[in-house]
Design a protein around this nucleic acid. Sequence first.
DNA 1: TTGTACGCGTTATCAA
DNA 2: TTGATAACGCGTACAA
Lengths: 358, 358
Amino acid sequence: MSKKHTDPTPSQAGSADGPPALPVPRGRTTLGMVAQRAGVSPSTVSRILNGTANVSPVKRALVERTIQELDFRPDPMARSLAGGRTMSVGVLTQFIDSPFYGEALRGIEDQLHPANYSPLFVSGHWNEAEETSRVALLQERKVDGLIVLTGRLSDAALLELAKALPVVVTGRRLSADNLYSLDYDNEEGMRLAVRHLHALGHRQIAFISGPLDHPDAQARMDGFRGEIQTTEPGYDPDLVVIGDFQESGGFRAMGLLLQSGRLFSAVIAANDQMAYGARLALHRAGLRVPEDVSLVGFDDLLYSAYTLPPLTSVRQSVYEVGQTAARAMLDLLARRTPPSKVIPAELVVRESTRMVRR
Amino acid sequence: MSKKHTDPTPSQAGSADGPPALPVPRGRTTLGMVAQRAGVSPSTVSRILNGTANVSPVKRALVERTIQELDFRPDPMARSLAGGRTMSVGVLTQFIDSPFYGEALRGIEDQLHPANYSPLFVSGHWNEAEETSRVALLQERKVDGLIVLTGRLSDAALLELAKALPVVVTGRRLSADNLYSLDYDNEEGMRLAVRHLHALGHRQIAFISGPLDHPDAQARMDGFRGEIQTTEPGYDPDLVVIGDFQESGGFRAMGLLLQSGRLFSAVIAANDQMAYGARLALHRAGLRVPEDVSLVGFDDLLYSAYTLPPLTSVRQSVYEVGQTAARAMLDLLARRTPPSKVIPAELVVRESTRMVRR
DNA sequence: TTGTACGCGTTATCAA
DNA sequence: TTGATAACGCGTACAA
């Protein structure tokens, strides 16, 4: 009789006290209460919850009904303490408000939520030390898995992590047990851009690169260089300038290009943001896009369809990358082998490119 | 002698095995181990950690040193289970990749982290039911506090929540114990925009509103209407059209405006994204900005400085909103009263507006 | 000021 | 198949 929680007034929701009232943080139904009410032991309830062992169909049904009635949901914290899952997966991104990776976050969220997992977002700011400490934080929080969006962690560090928990990493080609890597095809995307311009008759193609210590930037640069080398005048280092993946960097880079006096009829920016900056610089210099120079971006941000002129850009659905990463994580978590999948790059031709002027 | 964890090999970090190796998830140092090593009771360690009671300076120093040596960090889960804090605060936003609220998330993150709190981001998608369920999820996860970025929860729901945990809301004017609300001044911002245009001689000013069931949209609409009513021709309902806060909606809205045959020399869009769409529609119609029509946006997104022409827009530092909200939360958590602060709106004049043509 | 003992809600081990 | 029982790591009455 001295039990603490007795008669836990089930389902008292939906009374007539106003609109969608928040489910009253009821005196917290516990697993023990369910067990008691169903007349079974706590272990049995736990087993049913986790599918840890076989339970007789009758008891299972009974317990499941009771769970419904009491609207019982296991406490993630208690679960974690006891060595179970936290139903959360850590997501290491670089800036929480990145227009590029942002879509990936949404993809992850959209996939994880229906599976009852919660993403835990942390930002590494493109700084290895910071990434390392954020990942440590995630481990403290006992995430069940870790999704790493590119970033600067070493392959070795990732491999090491994969020994402790399932890891999904994008922007890399790595192979290991408990580790799934998902590389989008930066090189191919860049090749597409070069070929497009080439087909339009452009021969002097300038390139605004991202910072080369940035994995995406390096890959895109490789793609550009590789493809351009197979064409007419070949690769010309004077036609490439390094930016910082920001609008301002693109602006400055274009300024440099213009100053250099080198001629070019087209420009590829390693990302859309730099393309925006470059476009403004061209405008300031009295040059029109695409009449005077063609411009190609990379990423196909949402805005790019609405810039003036609408920007031709290389698209690799980052949203899809996020979704795929999350699904792979779910697979890993369920001890299934995720299907390998490549996110294709695709060129979206709009109005910033046209046939070279003769 | 049958203790489980003995001699927990302290600080084995920084050996010569490669670059910034991840701090080996050591066999987890526990509070008990600290206590044992320092020769005090676990409770004493706990008290020092939480400042729960007075401890003699000598023991305190000793324990603190031991904590350093062992690199001990309390387990958030265990802490939560035992009724302590989780050192996490829930953040309800609407879309994790919103270009507008994204900056706020960064502001929150930047403030919370140094204080050792982790944000837990969830998205409500402008859907009251979803917001409610996400908040419930946050409560399950036992967040210490809750930051709500605008959204559709009722004031009543918020007030109810504030009884259970500290709450900070933006985009609202609410007052209650344990609740801090932070309203940015949409109305004033809109007034600024109208006055600017008016000063340039514009009299026929069209307005592209956001969806009116959206709090920000309503406030901005109110601001526009209020100010325009005090001027020359007054408020003309035919000159306002409802958009959806997206580029595409701005595009369509401008199309409608153009079709209507009504004359106007300037347009205000309730947010930058719609301004982008409107600008493209104007372009398609052969109208130039600002030569033929002046255009003003709202939010001053990062891109707006790089659009063609650079967009005149109303700025209210969302980053600052995030920071302020987070600081207020920290205050609430520490049982201090947050200073009331208003985030001022400011007009950033660029090149999309000019004197009306006569 | 300090220590002991218990409880938080769950999972895991071991018997039965 | 099921049920006790012991952790998990920490906070906190309560006692000393």
